[in-house]
Amino acid sequence: MAQLAAEGKAAEVLFWVGCAGSFDARAQKVTVAFCKILNEAKVDFAILGTEESCTGDPARRAGNEFVFQMTALQNVEVLNMYGVKKIVTACPHCFNTIKNEYPDLGGNYEVIHHTQFIQDLIADGRLKIQEGGVFEGKKITYHDSCYLGRVNGVYEAPRSILESLDNDLVELKRSRANGLCCGAGGAQMFKEDEPGDKRINTERVEEAINSGASIIAANCPFCITMLSDGVKSFDKQEEVMVFDLAELIVNNNKL
């Protein structure tokens, strides 16, 4: 972004990578996959690079408003300095915080989740999905993340992407507004579970395995971590894979 600004240019959209997308080895693959899609569709995008900070979601939900305000106000300052208007992100937590919480802090942007963005690219004909791809007829199930689904009401865009892959979508019993959390939200990702009978991701993965699907499609880096851990706890990592929707597109189109 800084580079473009120096050249006096502006990008079509800012790709907000997020902490997971930047640092987590698994989520980095999603970041790369999404970049490939953006390049394939010839989208003129920019990143903030080192000027990006955590949106503050886990700090705020843990109860630490000070840390949230510090990082969030800094982000708002950077985004406003570059005159950013449109943001796309592959993390539903970043998506939610920037979209719903930054306006109170003086940050008003059009915020889109990457599944919505990809769906738009497909709808506009900018991204062609290769027919007869590897997922044709495959049983795939979809896990609604809380912050994209129930919290922000985005249920259709991810499903329409799956539809375009011509696979056999098996809905989980608890889906859409009734979707079950993966267990990472509300800063749970960063702490040990409270005492209980089982882990939340185990409960969710059990449901996904019982659906008979060989792929669990997700839209959130934290869900992917949780679900992958869950699959491992059942020792099913050979039979059931967890992928982000962007990765499915990249695999299908062999990008």
Partner: peptide, 29 residues
Amino acid sequence: DWVPMFTSIENTGSVWAIPDARDKWTELL
């Protein structure tokens, strides 16, 4: 468990204290 997350956001701008630059992933691309 939350304290390192808070400290890391405060000091490094990331939920995890990782010494790498935030855009190091671009090398993968």
